[in-house]
Measured scan of single mutants.
Amino acid sequence: MAAAAAAGAGPEMVRGQVFDVGPRYTNLSYIGEGAYGMVCSAYDNVNKVRVAIKKISPFEHQTYCQRTLREIKILLRFRHENIIGINDIIRAPTIEQMKDVYIVQDLMETDLYKLLKTQHLSNDHICYFLYQILRGLKYIHSANVLHRDLKPSNLLLNTTCDLKICDFGLARVADPDHDHTGFLTEYVATRWYRAPEIMLNSKGYTKSIDIWSVGCILAEMLSNRPIFPGKHYLDQLNHILGILGSPSQEDLNCIINLKARNYLLSLPHKNKVPWNRLFPNADSKALDLLDKMLTFNPHKRIEVEQALAHPYLEQYYDPSDEPIAEAPFKFDMELDDLPKEKLKELIFEETARFQPGYRS
């Protein structure tokens, strides 16, 4: 834990890192770190609560700039109880001085990944967590956004079992017609939660990839272990087919990539493993919904509104309290091709509203 900075004593240090967030945020305490930044909790002297502050230093890398800009653009436009918001952003007053960006968010005690390492969940908890994931996802999908990296560590939890989806750095506007060349190379989302079509096709992607990830998360809540822990690309596919069985001819016809289709045709026939054999203690309604989410063919996979209306979630289902976005989200430009200098300018502009004396 960093010592509390005395008023006016300059930035606090946390594990050798400068955290320049005073005077409003003090009493910093280390939480963890990701690929390009550290997260601390801090005391907000204005709202009198502890908050989470993520320090991001992305400006050396085009990919990190892209992810940072995506996350900020999306989260500043989203407003939903099951999606983490941005409360404040701290950065230098000029673009030349801006080396880091500090993002202030609600402090959540833990995440689903940490929880599943230590606790076996009751059916009631599984049901409530799944409902909140789908409630947040309904809003995301209504904005025409794909999260693309749903996994237990991106689901934040607090002691009252509130759940918030975080990390929109890989999110995209849904565009089933656009052929994202190089899709697989830039697709760094965790393999275990990846839909089979991501490994088999490169053309376009749809909201059904997020539903697949939610199915993987439900299976993990039922058993405290990942359902498809593939060691590499082909191993991942083999794990999936080992449980779902061989795809039907109709399902194979959806695979545009001939090499991928021929690979699947070359494999020995596998039978589907019954879900109640894998999860003998699970609620039968939970397994019915799991089956509809972990469907090989993305066109037959359940959609988020149908999933919310499934009998497993009937005690929570309330369409009048499951809000959607006001308007579909649009990125003005494809960020993939922009140089990091341009992305830095866009991050600077996007964060201006939090600067003292800002006038829109």
Rank of each mutant, 00 (worst) to 15 (best):
V51G: 14
I133H: 03
G182F: 09
I240W: 02
D175K: 11
R277F: 04
P323Y: 01
G10M: 10
Y317Q: 00
F59G: 13
P328C: 01
G204F: 01
S246A: 09
I217R: 07
D167W: 00
S122I: 13
L237D: 05
R67M: 14
S213R: 15
D288Y: 14
I74N: 15
Y131W: 05
P328K: 05
H232K: 02
N154K: 13
L244K: 05
K342H: 01
D111C: 09
Y358Q: 12
K344Q: 00
K114S: 07
R261N: 01
F296S: 12
Q97M: 10
P328W: 02
D336Y: 14
Y233R: 10
G230Q: 02
N27V: 05
A42N: 00
R277E: 11
F279A: 04
I133C: 10
T351H: 02
Q105E: 15
W192E: 06
G22S: 06
V273A: 09
Q119T: 05
G8I: 08
D106Q: 00
G85F: 12
I86M: 07
D106V: 13
T206R: 07
A260M: 02
I140F: 14
I255S: 12
D20T: 02
I126F: 14
T181R: 11
H120K: 13
I95L: 13
E305S: 03
G357C: 14
A219E: 14
T159Q: 09
L163C: 01
G204C: 11
A219D: 09
F228L: 14
A352W: 06
L264E: 00
S202L: 10
P226S: 11
C127Y: 12
N47A: 07
P311Y: 12
H299N: 14
A2S: 13
T159F: 05
H232W: 03
N87M: 09
P152D: 08
K207Y: 11
A171T: 13
K285I: 15
G10Q: 06
I198G: 01
R15G: 11
A189Y: 01
I56P: 14
G245L: 09
V46L: 12
A6C: 03
K285F: 08
N47W: 13
I302G: 03
I217Y: 08
L112H: 07
P247K: 03
P356M: 06
V145I: 00
W192F: 12
R24W: 01
P11N: 09
S213A: 12
S266C: 15
I198F: 15
L69G: 09
P311Q: 09
G10W: 14
R77L: 15
L170V: 00
G136Y: 01
H80T: 00
N262Q: 04
S248I: 00
S360I: 13
H239Y: 10
L137T: 05
P280S: 10
N238T: 13
K117D: 07
E322M: 08
I255K: 10
I211T: 07
E326N: 01
I198V: 12
R24Q: 07
A171W: 03
I198D: 02
V39E: 15
V101C: 07
R70C: 14
H310W: 10
S142E: 03
G242D: 13
H269S: 05
S223A: 14
T160Q: 08
S320I: 09
V49P: 13
N276A: 12
L313N: 03
K272V: 08
S29M: 05
N224V: 08
P311W: 01
Y102K: 10
Y205M: 06
I243S: 13
G10K: 03
S208T: 14
I83C: 01
E350L: 09
I133N: 15
N27P: 07
L146N: 02
W212N: 05
A3K: 07
C216A: 11
F296Q: 04
P11Y: 03
R172H: 02
D291C: 08
F329W: 07
F329S: 02
F354Y: 14
I72Q: 09
R79K: 13
I227E: 03
K99F: 01
G204R: 13
F348P: 05
L121I: 04
A189H: 05
K272G: 06
N281C: 06
E81F: 05
D291M: 01
D251E: 13
E322T: 00
D149F: 04
I256K: 11
N276M: 02
S57L: 14
T118P: 15
Q355H: 13
Q97A: 12
K151N: 13
Q105D: 14
E303P: 00
L287F: 03
K164R: 03
L75M: 14
L150V: 02
G8C: 07
T110F: 00
E305D: 15
